[in-house]
Amino acid sequence: MTDVENPDRPLARRTRRLFAVAAVVLALDLLTKIVAVAVIEPGRPIEIIGDTVTLRMVRNAGAAFSMATGMTWLLTLVAVAVVVGVIRIGRTLRSGWWAVGLGLVLGGALGNLIDRFFRSPGPLQGHVVDFVSIGWWPVFNVADSSIVCGAVLLVIITLFGIEPDGTRRADDKSDAPAATESAAATESEKKA
């Protein structure tokens, strides 16, 4: 079936990109956490670059920067809502950049959500495994960095006026030609 017969092909391609990015992030997060739990002893950090970059085992009951440590169950529900929201938005994506950004957020949210469900002390209250320590920055993991990078990317593309449907916001006259170019690119993708 050609793209002319199936106008949703770019949509399907962007959705696949979102899920592919999320799957890679999730796999890396799970793998690194398994290795970290097996190799890093609590209270005995492994120095990578002096004491600036270390691998340090931390079980985080809270959100980023160990905030809301007494509300683990609520953080779990929020993470579930984020996953559902990203999947719903992902089904309508026509922007490759949005697919990458949302894929990073989805993969990271799923990685930490798996910890919340399957690590001790129990379902909805599990502690997230954090192990990368850089200087004064709080200890984090692959999922955390993926969520942050995805969020930063989404903010940047939003500031540039790129919409999830692949068009550019025409807030002023300078953006109008970009929206026309985006529409023309979408039409050429359909014909290719």
Rank of each mutant, 00 (worst) to 15 (best):
R59Y: 13
A184I: 13
T69Q: 12
M71W: 12
L74K: 02
T180P: 04
L106Q: 08
A61Q: 10
D172H: 13
V24L: 06
S188W: 05
A68D: 01
T92R: 14
T15Y: 01
G50F: 01
A184Y: 08
R9L: 15
P42Q: 04
S66F: 07
V53I: 15
G122A: 06
R14H: 10
E5R: 13
I48W: 06
F19R: 05
N6L: 14
V84I: 11
T167W: 12
I162G: 01
P10H: 02
I89W: 12
R56C: 12
S188L: 12
V39G: 00
E41T: 06
A151E: 04
V39K: 08
A170P: 03
V25L: 03
V21A: 02
R116G: 02
I162S: 01
A61L: 09
G96V: 07
A170Y: 06
P121N: 07
T32L: 05
V37Y: 04
P45W: 04
G150R: 01
N112V: 11
S120L: 14
L26Q: 01
A185S: 11
A109W: 06
D3I: 15
T167F: 14
L154I: 01
G150Q: 02
I147L: 02
S145A: 09
V58K: 10
A63T: 11
I157W: 12
E5P: 13
R56A: 13
G101A: 12
R88V: 14
G150D: 03
K33T: 04
T2N: 15
A176Q: 13
T15L: 04
A20M: 10
L75S: 00
A143T: 02
G85M: 08
K191C: 06
L74M: 05
G161P: 07
F160R: 14
V155S: 06
W137Y: 12
G166E: 03
K191I: 14
R88K: 15
K191P: 00
L77T: 00
L31M: 11
A170F: 03
L159C: 08
M71P: 00
F19Q: 03
D130K: 02
G135Y: 08
P123A: 15
K173A: 15
V152H: 02
R168F: 11
F131Y: 13
W136L: 14
F19M: 10
A192N: 14
A170E: 12
L18W: 08
G135Q: 09
A151N: 01
T69C: 09
A176M: 11
G70F: 00
H127S: 11
V84F: 09
M67Q: 11
S146Y: 05
V39Y: 07
V82L: 04
R44P: 00
I114Q: 03
I114C: 06
L153P: 04
I89D: 03
L75Q: 01
L18S: 09
D115E: 02
L113I: 04
R91Q: 14
A81W: 09
T69G: 12
L110S: 02
T32P: 07
V37G: 02
P7Q: 12
D29P: 05
S120N: 11
A38D: 10
G122R: 07
G161R: 00
L28W: 03
G43S: 01
R17P: 00
V4P: 07
R88C: 12
D165A: 09
G107C: 04
E163S: 11
G126Y: 08
R14K: 09
R9E: 15
W73K: 00
T92P: 13
